[in-house]
């Protein structure tokens, strides 16, 4: 318990994120659908997640390893923290901001003015990642 509290303290106080560490409120006001979220995570054209992250997706052969494995991510991070990192991870990593259209350079015409995922899709992904507790 004490260890958990220290961990929480480090996460909030010692945060290196340009943006806040956590974004507790749902982008849509409702909970996402974990099944949809999983489909988005493993979709290489939509979520793009497994290009960089590995995870508990035994059916997916070609996963990345330049970002942390998603196994157990729901135990390591709160839903608010997951949401913040997907929306805009700030300076903590090179991970693209999935819900931002400002401050980008030379975006290909087909993607100009568009976020990588919609608010609903991000909520679905958050709901799914939160289930990855082992």
């Amino acid at each position: 318990m004490q260890l958990l509290m220290v961990f929480a303290l480090v996460c909030t106080v010692g945060s290196a994120y340009g943006a806040g560490d956590t974004m507790p409120a749902s982008l849509t006001g409702t909970r996402g659908d974990p099944a949809h979220g999983r489909a988005i995570v493993v979709n290489r054209q939509l979520g793009l997640c497994i290009l960089c992250h590995g995870g508990p997706f035994p059916e997916e052969r070609f996963q990345g390893d330049l970002a942390p494995d998603l196994k157990g991510v729901g135990a390591r991070l709160s839903e608010g923290q997951l949401r913040q990192r997907i929306v805009d991870s700030g300076k903590i990593s090179i991970m693209p901001a999935y819900f931002r259209t400002e401050g980008l350079i030379r975006v290909a015409p087909a993607f100009q003015g568009k976020t990588i995922l919609s608010a609903q899709q991000i909520e679905d992904v958050v709901a799914y990642l939160a289930t990855l507790r082992d």
Partner: peptide, 20 residues
């Protein structure tokens, strides 16, 4: 780009790791 990545972030900082 929309993914906001430089050449260097993959090919200098992360070479040897796996992308897809």
């Amino acid at each position: 780009g929309q993914l906001n990545l430089s050449c260097a972030q993959c090919h200098e900082d992360n070479w040897g790791r796996k992308l897809a």
